[in-house]
């Protein structure tokens, strides 16, 4: 056996098999190729919000050792999410520029938690997905027409309930809880964590918020984090799908950060939880006790056990510049959301 053979033996010893999370790197690549296609939106107010990602991290991935260690607001009553009575849960997360009615839901994410809470599945729904929205009641009591619109119009037209009904009818997934968060809440949560570390492959310039981010590994505060997850212009190919990739990466980083903060700085974590629970509105209303139980049931969920995907889409028949759901692909991807 010569030196090369010995060296090869050493190499085999040192080698690791690719983890499942390697697929995220493919997601990064997929951000890049979509250089053309989707029509550009006119500049709007806070058009994008990765808040949902943050809420997922806050509500879902963080074990709440602290919550029941003395937060006076935590209820002691029994609820459907109490330990031992866990059931699978589908959560619809809507990130909006404002929590008030009429805001835009620029981030739409479906989240599935299996009964054992050992993992979680996150499926991002492209906001310009062309769907037929059902006639639903607006906050003012009138009915919207059933028609084909980008899916984020459902929230703008009919609020969170309309958004939920639309998502349910498009995906055939029954939603148990809808969570809405606005960008201010997102910013506050990131700041409460003392920032979240990400690696930027390229610089990001967001002229609208006057934010410029340098490439490389860095810790983003709330304001910069918001720019990172919401900016659509000045980075990558400027597409919604590219932004979804960024939001999902940010979510993963934020979940890791939250876990580290919980382990390392209890005070900071307590503040984070307080801000998180004050930054979102849930339907049906989840009281603090229910939230606490959900947190606790997720103590077993490791950030690395979260599967990130994007709803499969294809070119819309009516308009090659629009995308519509790829029914067969969505059927496969969403199967776990329907069972249990």
């Amino acid at each position: 056996m010569d030196d090369l053979e010995l060296l090869r033996g050493l190499g085999r010893e040192l080698e690791h098999e690719p983890p499942g999370s390697l697929v995220r790197q493919r997601g990064r690549l997929e951000d890049a190729p979509r250089r053309r296609g989707r029509g550009h939106r006119p500049p709007g107010r806070w058009p994008l919000l990765g808040a949902v990602a943050a809420v997922t991290a806050a509500l879902v991935l963080v074990p709440a050792a602290l919550l029941h260690a003395g937060d006076p607001r935590v209820g002691r009553t029994a609820h459907p999410f109490a330990p031992g009575s866990e059931k699978p849960l589908n959560v619809l997360l809507l990130g909006s520029d404002t929590r008030a009615e009429g805001g835009r839901s620029d981030t739409i994410v479906l989240l599935h938690l299996p009964a054992d809470r050992k993992g979680a599945r996150v499926v991002s729904v492209p906001r310009d997905l062309l769907v037929r929205i059902k006639a639903c009641k607006t906050p003012k009591g009138t009915l919207t027409l059933s028609r084909e619109v980008p899916i984020n119009a459902a929230f703008a037209l009919g609020g969170a309930d309309c958004a939920r009904e639309t998502v349910e009818s498009v995906t055939s997934v029954e939603v148990d809880t809808t969570v809405v968060i606005d960008f201010a809440g997102f910013r506050g949560m990131v700041d409460a964590l003392g920032g979240v570390e990400v690696t930027l492959p390229e610089p990001i310039r967001d002229p609208k918020s006057g934010t410029a981010l340098l490439p490389g590994r860095q810790r983003l505060d709330g304001r910069r984090a918001l720019a990172y997850v919401r900016v659509r212009y000045g980075v990558g190919d400027g597409s919604d799908l590219s932004r979804i990739g960024r939001q999902q990466r940010f979510l993963a980083a934020m979940a890791r950060r939250a876990k580290a903060v919980q382990a390392g700085s209890p005070l900071r974590f307590a503040k984070f939880v307080a801000i998180a629970s004050g930054s979102v509105s849930t339907r049906p209303r989840m009281d603090v006790g229910a939230m606490e139980a959900l947190f606790r049931s997720l103590g077993r969920t490791e950030p690395d056990a979260v599967a990130f995907n994007t709803l499969p889409v294809r070119m819309a028949a009516s308009d090659p510049n629009r995308i519509t759901i790829d029914a067969a692909g969505a059927q496969r991807l969403l199967t776990p959301f329907r069972e249990d």
């Binding site: 690791h16 098999e17 690719p18 983890p19 499942g20 999370s21 697929v23 493919r26 997601g27 997929e30 296609g37 993992g119 599945r121 499926v123 799908l241 979804i244 690395d304 056990a305 979260v306 599967a307 990130f308 995907n309 994007t310 709803l311 499969p312 889409v313 294809r314 070119m315 995308i323 790829d326 692909g329 969505a330 496969r332 991807l333 776990p336």
Partner: peptide, 22 residues
């Protein structure tokens, strides 16, 4: 072979975005 950080089975499927546009 799945690594030590193997995820839930669906992670073995490539992300959905790749299926777009044929």
């Amino acid at each position: 072979k799945a690594g030590p950080h193997a995820m839930v089975p669906s992670m073995t499927a490539p992300p959905a975005g790749a299926r777009a546009a044929g």
